[in-house]
Design a protein around this nucleic acid. Sequence first.
RNA 1: GGGCACUUAGCUCAGCGGUAGAGCACUACCUUGACAUGGUAGGGGUCAGAGGUUCGAUCCCUCUAGUGCCCA
Length: 925
Amino acid sequence: MLDKTYQPAEIEPRINEAWTKADAFRSGRPDRAGAPPYSIVIPPPNVTGSLHMGHALNNTLQDVLVRFERMRGRDVLWQPGTDHAGIATQMVVERQLMERQQPGRRELGREEFVRRVWEWKEESGSTIVNQLKRLGASCDWSRERFTMDEGLSRAVIKVFVELFRQGLIYKDKRLVNWDPKFQTAISDLEVVQIEKKGSFVWADGDPEKPFDAEALAKVLKKDPSGHMYHFRYPLAKKVKGYDKDYIVVATTRPETMLGDTGVAVHPEDERYAALIEAGAKVRLPLVGRDIPIVADEYSDPEKGTGAVKITPAHDFNDFEVGRRHDLAKINVLDAFGRIVDGEDVPKAYRGLARFEARRRVVADLAALGLLAKIEPTTHTVPHGDRSNDVIEPWLTDQWYVNAGELAKPAIAAVESGKTTFVPKNWEKTYYEWMRNIEPWCISRQLWWGHQIPAWYGPDGHVFVAYDEEEARAAAETHYAGSNAPLTLTRDEDVLDTWFSSALWPFSTLGWPDETEELKLYYPTSVLVTGFDIIFFWVARMMMMGLHFMKEVPFHTVYIHALVRDEKGQKMSKSKGNVIDPLALIDKYGADALRFTLAAMAAQGRDIKLAPARVEGYRNFATKLWNAARFGEMNECVRQFDFDPHSVTHTLNRWIVGETERAANAVTAGLEGYRFNEAAGAIYEFVWGVYCDWYLELIKPILAGDDEQAIAETRACTAWVLDQCLKLLHPFMPFITEELWAHMVEHGERRLSLLCLSEWPRLSGLSSSTADEEIGWVVRLVSEVRSVRTEMNVPAGAKIPLVLTGASEGTVARARRHDETIRRLARLDGITIADTAPKGAALIVIGEATAALPLEGVIDMGAERKRLSKEIEKAEGDRNKAATWLGNDANVAKSPEHVVELNRERVAEAMDRIARLTAALKRIEG
RNA sequence: GGGCACUUAGCUCAGCGGUAGAGCACUACCUUGACAUGGUAGGGGUCAGAGGUUCGAUCCCUCUAGUGCCCA
């Protein structure tokens, strides 16, 4: 016997165990041999991670699809695994060392540090995996992979070497986004632009208000950004036709002026034409270097003074300007973001932290009378997405992938429809980025990751090879004839984490070996992910998949929304608005959380999660639980030979038809990735149809003495519940699996776990006569209940009902369902009469009128009010439809069924009005 | 500045050329032999605003206002 209340915490671990024991999620099960494959690779969560709401949504949707297809008989592989997450993981371990007051990374040395990271990974890498299991993720856990395990590393090396040999990976010296906190380069994608606006205002000219360096320092201490500084750069020589002896430039980063190698003005800016003409130079203050004034369209005459300082080594735009005019690139920052200790920089600034240097430069220029003004300005400042530190564009040697070349087939594959995005509009975003793609910087100055397979000879010549042995062989050939001992040094850098993630769809299947799995499961069926990693991951998997497998990695990309909090804000630890999915699972169960996420996953919208929703769906689970309990109490057990087509009782004919409709709706929803519609359909069926009506309607049968009807109804009730369990299983796997097992305690044994059972394929079950008949009963019961409430009839009081003007068919219906109607509407009898008794409340239903004689009980004033309201409503309906019909254009141009619909509305409304008016008159008369 | 969304009940969201829906919240009544994590009934919306297309617009188009996101 089922417990009275449903306890998710009790059943979920038990069910998880049963699945594991049965090896239910293994791909390539013998019973699926030859079945069409269905495969999904999980977006590998960071090993450092723990389950957040985004994971919960992402994996719920994948699990819904995977369970659905598994039940449809496919050979399903949901490939799980985790990502080594270079920066994030290295950060976590470094922090841990610090907290434990152990030696830091650099003290430990590379080998020891990496060993510590592996140790940490072994200890806590399974956290997220266990959390996914709690969510119910039906991955093939026997195939779990890690981006740094042996096989995947082999794939990474091969890809690097091959791309290098094909000229698609190369080393280059250019500006990169440098993260001074982690001392590594990062890719464009790992940079987030943050808007800053300062508050310090100052301009020279007012002797009352001298520049106050300390006040500025105070403001900058809070935030070093957000101001535009205007400097006067003195001309090296006075120029004829230009009336001043200086030029004013503006910048938001004063300290970079130490590396200025030019000043740019617009070629058509007449204010500066003379300077360009004369080939004028400015003498860079503080430094004393003479630098040219050049004409370049980059400078905007509308902005500031129209003159900009050019620092090619520390700004992406300036770099380009510098290249066009052959300006020197002077590096004034070191890896930590400090001013370099070198000849190019005046002694006073050497070794200063960058923002300290900023204050110093401004103060020193002010002291020289060269500071014109400071004003607050809104500008975006690049920050590292992990470090949250201000990123410096910095000139270094890094490895790059020629993404532009790899992007071409990746663009074509989406254009030709080999891969489609759902919803479609994300394709535009994908194209936009792919068509303007920049070289991808893949080297990172970290220790945790795949070390780049490149070795340098004594003269710096690079040998890229599968291993040191091969590199050595190549080097020996290269240096043949030289007698010097050959020492090779391996490149210190590791690869961007996303480099290995890009190979995930085929590296996890065993590539570069030609495995069975690769043949069977590649390309994968669908990729499910959030839009925030379309660029990071989806695009790169497309590029790598097409290049190495010559085939797209997935046929469909389903892009889901971001989960936000109730107010629509992105969840973040700093805002303190994070909703922990595990806390919700603890409180309401994994099924409730999953159902909530699926029900809210409408295409193309963010999900604002209200925890009350989860509670609501937990209640839904309880409802299902109790419906099963009802079945159990009434001996509704499954019959193997039950055929829904053969039921004879109207109620059963009706419910099997409704079941078919629900099954079709759920199936269609899932096939179209409309998770919310699928979830909505099964919710409405289970609660609104099966529980609210069917189970109530059959109670009199079960309590009656018609053995045949009882037997059929019991079997039918059990069958419908089974269909509900199946249809609901992808969304709520735990409770459904539990009930599936439990409901046969007294019946036929199950042939399999629910998760491996067959998805309902129903047809030919609906009957219009049954639908009409039960529809009539439902309407009558609802109307009576409604009148009872409005008439303030006590809920416990039983009242009689007199049916008048009923056709033979209606009378027969009323007889057939006499007991049911009496029970649900709380009546003490239904009689047939020619005319309604006096002092009765009247209900118009179809051609008949149902009278509730309530003389003495009834409040005539209330009944008058009720009838008037009904009449008003009917008149509204009639007027609306009649007006519509009154317009000739409507009738002439609308489709026939719309015209007909409106005619019916008018006729029906008129009929109601007539009978309601008669009823009203009788009360008044 | 460029691009993409969004604006529907108190709240969170569906819907979408043919008389507006759900969950939660709210009101009243009900411990009826599955279920108070429940039942029954009910209140609540000129579908942001203004034009246009159409026989007909919450839905399609244009503009306006507001909000959010992405890219510079």
